[in-house]
């Protein structure tokens, strides 16, 4: 149980925020930040622990969002069921893309490219296919009931997304400590060596991809419930592919809390940029781009890594000074 203690502490602290803060603006900000964090947590399993950089996680986010929206709007299926099926849909898309690309041995740049292409294909299909509402998009009917997974207060939505983030944190922790996780990290460090040692690299990567896709799809499902609208540019747009990889990289790639930390940092920066320039589009993303380059340049292990680095240095200086004192004494 001890390994889950940090998660419990962080989640309880976050869960207490709406009790203290009642501002809708702040809660809205936090809901979106947690949603992006969830998408990033998905990316982190595959990219952070497995070293497979996907540039097309929009494929999973969008599938989750569309399945949830279309099942409710067109087939009158209950929101909770639609939500679960949305996650399942994302996982299936992940399994298909993963099977195709890992079986043909795509790595590195090639893998990044093929994921990007799949997301684009889905975006174009969604923008013309009648079932998704084509260019118009799909609206979900406003129905503020628990049974419809819609709430009047932002706080309720906040707790829903926080629960999802908590589940993803626990899943990540379990992966980290499992044999599966060890194999995954071995693949990241040196795929050929891992294969030589008898790790079934294709199966492990595929498993990570499915898990990753399901988590990111959950963020998409939540998007639909929160905004009650999707279209192809939102669901399969490049913005979510970029934010999904940006948050873990900035927060600390391949770390448990990296995506959460990164999402809060990135979203805060975005809000700051927006408040400085008003409603002009683009500047927040310029800031994101600069942060991405600067983090890769100067903080290769992200914010979490920087914090750990500082803590370690403090501990070392302490040790050195105590050693010195001991030496003098």
């Amino acid at each position: 149980m001890k390994v889950f203690a940090p998660i419990v502490v962080v989640v309880i602290l976050l869960a207490a925020i709406p009790v203290v803060v009642h501002s809708n603006v702040v809660l809205n900000f936090l809901v979106v930040a947690l949603m992006v964090a969830l998408a990033g947590q998905g990316w982190n399993i595959l990219g952070g622990y497995g070293g497979q950089y996907s540039f097309g996680h929009a494929a999973f986010f969008g599938t989750g969002a569309y399945v949830t929206a279309v099942l409710q709007a067109r087939y009158g299926i209950n929101a909770w069921t639609a939500f679960m099926l949305g996650i399942l849909g994302g996982a299936v898309v992940g399994a298909v893309i993963g099977t195709l690309s890992f079986r043909s041995g795509l790595r590195g740049s090639y893998f990044a490219l093929v994921t990007l292409a799949f997301a684009e294909v889905l975006r174009i299909v969604a923008s013309v296919a009648p079932i998704t509402g084509a260019g118009v998009g799909t609206l979900v009917r406003l129905d503020l009931r628990l049974a419809a997974l819609q709430f009047e207060s932002r706080a309720a939505f906040y707790w829903v997304i926080l629960t999802l983030v908590a589940v993803a944190l626990i899943v990540t922790r379990i992966v980290e400590r499992s044999r599966f996780g060890a194999w995954l990290i071995a693949i990241r460090e040196n795929e050929d060596a891992a294969m030589a040692l008898g790790v079934d690299t294709t199966a492990i990567k595929l498993g990570a991809m499915v898990m990753s896709a399901a988590i990111t799809a959950a963020a998409g499902c939540f998007y639909t419930q929160y905004f009650l609208f999707v279209d192809s540019g939102i669901a399969y747009g490049t913005w979510i592919s970029i934010e999904a990889l940006l948050t873990p990289i900035i927060g600390g790639i391949g770390t448990l809390f990296g995506p959460l930390l990164g999402a809060l940092a990135v979203r805060t920066l975005g809000e700051l940029a927006q408040s400085i320039t008003g409603d002009a589009p683009g500047l927040d993303l310029v800031v994101f781009g600069c942060v991405l380059v600067l983090v890769v340049w100067f903080l290769p292990r992200g914010l979490a890594g920087a914090v750990a680095g500082i803590a370690q240095r403090l501990r070392q200086t302490e040790r050195v000074s105590t050693a010195r004192e001991a030496g003098h004494g």
Partner: peptide, 16 residues
């Protein structure tokens, strides 16, 4: 990642 970051910067600076 760096080239992706540059792409985001250039494209959105133009948009801005």
């Amino acid at each position: 990642l760096v080239t992706l970051g540059l792409a985001v910067i250039i494209e959105n600076a133009l948009l801005f």
